[in-house]
Structures are given as structure tokens and as C-alpha cells.
């Protein structure tokens, strides 16, 4: 137990944790949005994120962007990558909904069938990148770790009270929080957002008010997917890698974050994500990095034991009638 190391660098560990947690939080939004409306844990969401990271890699390759590229190429490549990843992830999420979930809904399938289908979709997407694409296109597809060029070098931007903040940390935290604020405003203050909340609270009555449920469900998948796409972009800036199964652990952590904050609650996803990130970094300093995942799940179990609705409780579908 290395308390001195944690205490001495508490500030920088916290910022590290927040950076990590911001990405969890963005991905967590996808779980929470879909759960709020459909009462379904979309286990394919982790792969929605994975597709985003590959898209970033692809765009960089198209622009021939490397660590040595000039400023113009870097700005162009990262902007296009951000947009492309957002679209690709949103598109993947939408495709899963249209191809897999909607036909099940039309047949009134029981919840377990949805869950198994979700896991199936996740496996299909993983194997597409881990196996199928390799057969057709060869490497880098496959089961190996793929490194993504570092277009933006990590630099210390400024130091506050002995804590130095890097440009990447700032971009990740600011980007994630910005997306979450925009999503929160959309859901709480726009007409379509009201439709989303109506379906979450009472789907039958929402239909009686003229809300097209299928459209709301599509919207929710697209929004969650877009958030995962932005998360993928931020992730690649911070970690410079992707892999066919990169979504798995991030997905589980993001799901944990969603449950931690209160699944179905958008602000809960933020709280849960940030908290989980910070706890992970603290524990890896205290014990060793091997304990990071263990601690994350111990926290989850503790929350579920003492506060099963999560820290903030459910809100999107509050007191569903």
C-alpha cells in the first residue's frame, strides 16, 4: 500500500482519473439512454465504441496522417476522424437496432431474447474485425493490437497548485463534458427530447400523445452511438491504440459507470463514469495497476448492495407508471 505516492500526487492522479472516467461516462450514456427507453442492456454498445476507434484509424490512414505530419494535415485528419467516428458509431448502433432489435419487438419477444441477441450482435461485430475483415482485407484487421499514429503530442499546458494538466487531458475532459451538456439540454429542453422522456416514462401514453415510438427508439440509438463515437475519438487521442475486442473492457466499465450513477439517468452516467475513473487510478496507485479492474467491480458490488438504484437513482423513466 503506497499511501505516500497517492497523497503526494493526489492532484495529478485525480486528473488522470477524471480523464479516464470522462470516456467511461460518454460510453455509459449509450447504455443509459437505451435502457431508459427500452429497459434493455444493449451489450452490443461496447462494439459501437470499437467501430469508432477503427474509423479513426481508417481516416488517419486515408489522410496519411502520422506523428510527422504538419499542422494542417493533423487538424484536417482529426476533424474528419471525429465526424467519421461519430457517424460510424451512430450508424452501427442504428443498424443493430433495425436489423436485430426491431424485428424482435414486432414479435413481442421476451426480455431474455433481447439480451441474448445483444450478446450475439456484440460477438458478430467483434469477429467481423477480428476475423472476417482479415480474410478479405488482411492486416491490420485481425486479433493483434493496432497502434494509431499520435497526431497530437502530449504537452503540459499549465500547472495549477502543483498539478500539471496536459493538452490531451484537457481535450478529453472538456470534450466529454461538452457532449454531455449538449445531450442533457437536448433531452430536457427540446420537443424530441420530451418525446424520449415520454416514452421512457410511459410508452403507451406517449403513443396516445402522438409520439412515434420507433422513431424515438432510433433516435436514442443514434444519440448513444454518436456519444460512443466521440468517446472513441477521445480514447484514441489518449491511448493511441485499437483492437478487435477493445470494446469489451471499456463496455463493461461504462456499464458499471451507468449502474453506479443510476441507470436510466443521464447525469448519473457522468457522476458514475468520473467516480469510477478516479477510483481506478487511486487503487492502481495504492496497490498496483493489476488491482484496477478488481477495485472497479468491488465498488460496483458495494453500490448495488447498499444503493441498488445507483448514486443518483433512475430519472429518465422516473416512477414509470
Amino acid at each position: 500500500m503506497d499511501f505516500t505516492s497517492l497523497i503526494d500526487n493526489l492532484g495529478s492522479h485525480t486528473v488522470d482519473g477524471l480523464t479516464k472516467g470522462a470516456i467511461y461516462a460518454l460510453v455509459a450514456l449509450g447504455y443509459t439512454l437505451v435502457y431508459g427507453v427500452l429497459r434493455l442492456i444493449n451489450f452490443a454498445h461496447s462494439e459501437v465504441f470499437m467501430v469508432g476507434t477503427w474509423t479513426v484509424f481508417g481516416v488517419y490512414a486515408v489522410f496519411n496522417a502520422t506523428a510527422a505530419s504538419g499542422v494542417g494535415t493533423v487538424i484536417l485528419a482529426t476533424s474528419v476522424a471525429l465526424i467519421a467516428a461519430t457517424l460510424a458509431s451512430a450508424g452501427t448502433a442504428l443498424a443493430v437496432e433495425r436489423i436485430a432489435y426491431r424485428p424482435l419487438r414486432k414479435k413481442n419477444a421476451p426480455p431474455l431474447i433481447f439480451l441474448i441477441t445483444a450478446i450475439g450482435c456484440s460477438l458478430v461485430l467483434v469477429e467481423l474485425f477480428g476475423h472476417v475483415f482479415r480474410q478479405f482485407f488482411g492486416p491490420p484487421f485481425g486479433r493483434a493490437l493496432v497502434s494509431i499514429p499520435t497526431l497530437i503530442d502530449t504537452k503540459v499546458l499549465f500547472t495549477v497548485g502543483g498539478v500539471s494538466i496536459t493538452n490531451i487531458q484537457l481535450i478529453v475532459i472538456f470534450g466529454a463534458v461538452l457532449m454531455m451538456v449538449l445531450l442533457d439540454l437536448f433531452v430536457n429542453y427540446s420537443r424530441l427530447g420530451r418525446g424520449v422522456r415520454a416514452v421512457a416514462q410511459d410508452p403507451d401514453t406517449a403513443a396516445l400523445m402522438g409520439v412515434n415510438q420507433d422513431r424515438v427508439i432510433m433516435l436514442v440509438f443514434v444519440l448513444g452511438g454518436a456519444m460512443a463515437g466521440v468517446a472513441a475519438m477521445l480514447y484514441t487521442l489518449r491511448y493511441d491504440i485499437t483492437k478487435f475486442d477493445i470494446g469489451f473492457l471499456i463496455g463493461v466499465k461504462a456499464f458499471t459507470a451507468a449502474v453506479l450513477g443510476g441507470i436510466g439517468n443521464l447525469r448519473g452516467a457522468l457522476v458514475g463514469g468520473l467516480l469510477l475513473g478516479v477510483v481506478e487510478v487511486y487503487s492502481s496507485t495504492l496497490f498496483s495497476s493489476n488491482w484496477e479492474d478488481v477495485t472497479a467491480f468491488v465498488v460496483l458490488i458495494a453500490v448495488l448492495m447498499f444503493r441498488p438504484t445507483g448514486i443518483l437513482g433512475e430519472s429518465l423513466g422516473k416512477a414509470r407508471a
Partner: peptide
């Protein structure tokens, strides 16, 4: 569908009111 009928000018106040409790 229900939402299409509603757009045609048919609106039901359901049994047990069905207000959106969180709004």
C-alpha cells in the same frame, strides 16, 4: 398505430390518468 390515430384527431385520456410523472 396509436400515434397515427392521434394525429387524425382522436385523443384518449387513459384509465388511471397516465400523466408523465417525471415531467
Amino acid at each position: 398505430r396509436a400515434d397515427q390515430r392521434m394525429r387524425k384527431g382522436l385523443c384518449l385520456v387513459p384509465e388511471g390518468r397516465g400523466v408523465f410523472p417525471g415531467m
